[in-house]
């Protein structure tokens, strides 16, 4: 079972509107997979189906071998999720946030304590471990949110525009963490509007109007379209459809 995500003609309709239209792709365990697309291309709908939050209209998909129709509870145990808004509790301390999220996934008490200490040490948050999250700089929150999404050692973690608005150095420090997690075997499924970040992915898919228009390594994609950046590829594929 080396596939973290596997979909076959996965489709979601809302009335007449087809949000995702027969998307078929695989993501290997430990891969960094970039999931790109214009606003409204159907990325969010697809991610919700993969996380077991939204029932597909047709097609099939498995996450770490679990079926998205019937095994949503098992899926929730093996995935982590981090959105742009971080989903940290601003009025809890760093340590309390870690313990809370660990607790949700049923980590035993000793394990919780160990995890909390480990994360605080790795992120060098020792001096602020008992301070409210609200008082942390944006970049720190972001890294904490990522660690919290990984607290139950998920097989795959979904990152929805995780780096919006942070400074370039923090953004790269964040990608360092992503690389580390992938290196430990966690599958990374990431969406972003920064096209340079698309280059950091092992493979990238580009969605346009509900369909996957291209799926390959960044290098192969650039070669296929004869451009020198992922931005170029994206502009070719998505242009003309963004105003719909």
């Amino acid at each position: 079972m080396d596939k973290a995500v596997s979909t076959d003609k996965l489709t979601k309709r809302f009335g007449d509107f087809v949000a995702t239209n027969e998307i078929t792709f695989d993501v290997a365990q430990g891969e960094i997979f970039g999931f790109l697309g214009a606003n409204g291309a159907g990325k969010t709908t697809a991610i919700r189906m993969l996380c077991g939050l939204l029932k597909p209209t047709s097609g099939s998909a498995t996450i770490a071998g679990f079926d998205v129709y019937r095994q949503t509870e098992q899926i929730k145990q093996v995935i982590g999720y981090m959105s742009q808004r971080f989903s940290l509790y601003e009025d809890l301390t760093v340590r309390e946030n870690i313990r809370f999220y660990g607790g949700i996934y049923g980590l035993p008490k000793t394990e919780l304590r160990r995890k909390a200490d480990e994360i605080i040490q790795t992120l060098e948050l020792g001096t602020v471990a008992d301070k409210l999250v609200a008082s942390l700089p944006l970049g720190w929150k972001q890294r904490l949110a990522f660690s919290v999404a990984l607290v139950h050692d998920p097989r795959i973690v979904f990152l929805d525009e995780p780096t919006g608005g942070v400074d370039p150095i923090t953004r790269r420090q964040f990608w360092d963490m992503i690389y580390e997690a992938a290196n430990r075997g966690t599958t990374i499924f990431v969406t972003t509007h920064y096209m340079d970040e698309a280059e950091y992915c092992n493979r990238v898919s580009i969605m346009v109007d509900g369909r996957i228009k291209a799926l390959d390594t960044p290098a192969a994609m650039k070669q296929a379209f004869g451009v020198d950046s992922m931005d170029g590829v994206f502009q070719i594929l998505a242009r003309g459809t963004s105003t719909k």
């Binding site: 525009e161 502009q235 963004s242």
Partner: peptide, 11 residues
Amino acid sequence: TTGVDAVSRKE
């Protein structure tokens, strides 16, 4: 242009 996709940004 925050939160807007690369194509819309360019336009």
